[in-house]
């Protein structure tokens, strides 16, 4: 508070320097000159995006070609929307869309808020030793590969060897067929993701919470706010910015489902609920070397992502929140 008071008069100081009335271009130029060091700061990043993102991105035009390495991007024949038509007219398109969306929405509803809740819970722990111990434990699964997690899941839930089923048998109950039952598949994927990433996800939120001014808590206590209310009125707002950005970005990748996890967990019995765009692209596009076709599918996903992000951003702005851009 104190700091801000002293600073207040300085506001507008930079603009004061270029107060002279000027043409539009002249103002633009003087603004750019004024902020030259900011551009210098941004330059490495901009170069990075141009070289390693934009130059490769131009290659996406092969979605409209029958790409052949021999002719290259410049020489391959154009086929218009043929690959898109093939994709949309595929008998399985609706199944793929349904599964992708189902898995994605489950993740949005259960997986996305999980680390937020965990961060809030951790923030309420008084004993710093206990807090650190729990924190260090829950973030470890992030480092385990999906192959390993597949192995562990098999160890826990398979019918012949699974610990869970062995326990059921010892209680004289029927074993449950979890890994090859279509009804459990989506739930299991969501649970696996939460288990793997919940702790890791807290890092970013705890960093946001770390920025909260302790005075705000003190003030809230004075006002007689209980812990739940303090959580709601002080801690959560501090994380709002981060949550919103992450949420909008997540919506942009609504058609991405995490290829490796699903590919490993998939088996013949659950194909109908497990096949998603990503596994389809892998099988059809990459293994069979159909670059143009798989690029077209990727482009479709991107365009859906653009629509989602733009809409979400508009909504955020309408409700007076900070938006992404």
């Amino acid at each position: 508070m104190k700091v801000q008071d002293t600073v207040q008069p300085a506001k507008g100081a930079p603009t004061a320097r270029s107060a002279k009335p000027k043409s539009k271009w002249g103002r633009l130029w003087s603004d750019v000159v004024r902020d030259k060091y900011l551009y210098v700061l941004a330059l490495p990043g901009i170069l990075f995006f141009i070289i390693f993102k934009y130059i490769p991105i131009t290659n996406l035009v092969i979605a409209f070609q029958e790409y052949s390495p021999y002719f290259g991007v410049l020489g391959s024949p154009w086929v218009g929307f043929e690959h898109f038509a093939r994709f949309f007219s595929n008998n399985d398109f609706w199944m793929l869309l349904r599964n992708t969306l189902a898995i994605s929405f489950l993740s949005l509803i259960f997986f996305f808020p999980a680390p937020i809740i965990l961060s809030l819970m951790l923030n309420e722990v008084r004993s710093s030793l206990y807090k650190r111990t729990i924190q260090s434990l829950v973030y470890i699964p992030h480092f385990l590969s999906w192959v390993l997690i597949y192995g562990l899941t098999y160890l826990m839930f398979s019918q012949s060897e699974g610990l869970f089923n062995k326990w059921l048998v010892s209680m004289n109950w029927e074993t449950i067929d979890i890994l090859s039952n279509p009804n459990y598949f989506w739930g299991m994927l969501t649970a696996q993701s939460i288990w793997k990433e919940i702790g890791w996800g807290t890092i970013i939120f705890l960093a946001a919470i770390a920025g909260v001014d302790p005075q705000l808590y003190e003030a809230a206590v004075m006002d007689g706010a209980g812990r739940l209310r303090r959580m709601w009125h002080v801690t959560l707002p501090a994380m709002r910015n981060v949550i919103l950005i992450l949420l909008i970005l997540r919506l942009g990748t609504i058609l991405d489902t995490g290829f490796e996890q699903i590919y490993l967990m998939m088996n013949a019995a659950v194909t109908n609920v497990a096949e998603v765009f990503d596994t389809y692209v892998y099988r059809v596009g990459i293994r069979q070397g159909e670059f143009s076709y798989s690029t077209a599918i990727g482009l479709f996903k991107s365009i859906v992502g653009v629509i989602m992000v733009v809409t979400a951003n508009k909504l955020a702005r309408r409700y007076g929140e900070d938006s992404l851009y």
Partner: peptide, 24 residues
């Protein structure tokens, strides 16, 4: 450090334009 990064990126981009479109 910044300078070094900049230089690296700049020289890289020069190299890139010098080589140009991959292909055969």
């Amino acid at each position: 450090l910044l300078k070094m990064t900049l230089l690296l990126l700049l020289t890289s981009s020069l190299l890139l334009s010098a080589c140009g479109g991959g292909g055969s």
